[in-house]
């Protein structure tokens, strides 16, 4: 019996000699944001979302002229908490507008393959996309929140001028992060799961609104504060309430903020994990 050489056939790792650049996600984020900022509708959405800042600033100015008005509309931590909480609908709309197509479009058109045929890793790609949405959502939450703070501080130095009030800056940033990070991750997961941007955007709304309504029903049925854990909105609000130290709403009054924070953190990490496993350049057709 004669024997012949059998070659083991397998894929071999390519040892690229040129090291990868350090901040490889930057071009993805930069180009994505550039494309968004060139859209009039995007700018319009941001502009509308900034209107409440001016309304609040007028409110603060009013209280400096008529200090007795502060009894009705006090300039305190709650002002900034309420402001951020009220920015939520704009953040959701921005998520659907700017985030729904971020991955879905790439996966539908094969654009992902183009990205990954460059010296980029999947993590770079995802991080770049996360940054696009993070910046967009911060533009309607954190940035206006900080502008409101510094604007209010300069308008009412007697109320917000003390150095201790500078603590509001990390508070605003922390609550904005609690709003923006889980939302960013969730929108990107929906975008990765759906092939159409429209479906991704609506899917995100389905999950967000669905969890809020489910909470409303569960709360009415059980009157248990822990029902709040099923609502993304309620957990965000509870975390915000804890950060700013404001009185919680009756639906979540007894919900420990640590639990709410844990839910948001789990949501964020879970979404990142799904993103990592789901985003593939090549779809296996069975």
């Amino acid at each position: 019996m004669s024997s012949s050489q059998i070659y083991e056939q397998h894929y071999r790792r390519l040892d690229a000699s040129i090291p990868l650049r350090a901040q490889r996600w930057i071009p993805i984020a930069r180009e994505g944001l550039k494309a968004l900022f060139s859209l009039r509708a995007y700018l319009a959405l941001i502009s509308i979302a900034w209107l409440p800042v001016f309304v609040r600033l007028v409110q603060v100015y009013f209280t400096t002229r008529f200090p007795e008005a502060r009894r009705v509309v006090p300039v305190d931590d709650k002002l900034f908490f309420d402001f951020l909480a009220q920015q939520l609908p704009w953040m959701l709309l921005m998520s659907a507008y700017a985030g729904a197509g971020l991955i879905a479009n790439d996966m539908r058109t094969g654009g992902l393959l183009l990205y990954l045929s460059r010296p980029l890793t999947l993590v770079d790609y995802i991080f770049g996309k996360v940054m696009i949405l993070f910046v967009s959502l911060s533009m309607v939450t954190m940035v206006p929140g900080l502008v409101l703070f510094f604007g209010a501080r300069s308008l009412a130095p007697d109320v917000l001028g003390a150095a201790s009030h500078l603590l509001l800056v990390p508070k605003i940033v922390a609550m904005a992060l609690a709003l923006v990070l889980p939302t960013t991750a969730l929108v990107l997961v929906m975008s990765a799961l759906a092939r159409s941007a429209r479906f991704a955007g609506l899917g995100f709304f389905f999950v967000f609104v669905g969890s809020t309504v489910a909470h409303a029903i569960a709360w009415r049925a059980t009157r248990s504060a822990y029902a709040g854990l099923i609502s993304i909105q309620a957990t965000m609000r509870r975390v915000g309430e804890a950060i700013f130290g404001v009185k919680p709403t009756r639906m979540t009054a007894d919900l420990p903020p640590e639990y709410a924070f844990a839910v948001l953190a789990l949501l964020f990490l879970g979404c990142l994990f799904v993103l990592k496993t789901r985003v593939r350049a090549v779809e296996i057709v069975k």
Binding site: R198, F199, L202, F205, F206, V209, G210, V213, A214, I217
Partner: peptide, 21 residues
Amino acid sequence: LYGMVIALFFVRNLLPLVALL
């Protein structure tokens, strides 16, 4: 409970979203 589900969950929130989709 069913009344709540049909009014809050279906008619007021989810069905308009389904219609939008």
